[in-house]
């Protein structure tokens, strides 16, 4: 990563990874799209910095 996106340390990443996985499980297969979209909107709004969010959208679009 580069630009304005901050990287978390591995330990924090592990916590985040598990939290997100479990939340998506909880949403269920038929609601996972909607859930992920809501989550991205909440997080993007919370970050509030358009450049950071733009960079995040670009990073996540790679190698789909």
């Amino acid at each position: 990563m580069s630009g304005k996106l901050n990287e978390a340390d591995t330990e924090t990443l592990e916590v985040l990874f598990r939290m997100l996985s479990q939340a998506i499980e909880e949403a269920g297969a038929d609601k996972e799209r909607l859930y992920l979209a809501k989550l991205s909107m909440v997080m993007a709004s919370h970050i509030g910095d358009v450049d950071v969010v733009r960079e995040a959208t670009t990073v996540a679009l790679q190698d789909l």
Partner: peptide, 17 residues
């Protein structure tokens, strides 16, 4: 379409959106 539904669904409880 997806983001619209996300916003509408959030709007039920979240005034900011």
């Amino acid at each position: 379409t997806l983001m619209r539904d996300a916003v509408l669904s959030l709007a039920i409880s979240q005034p900011w959106v």
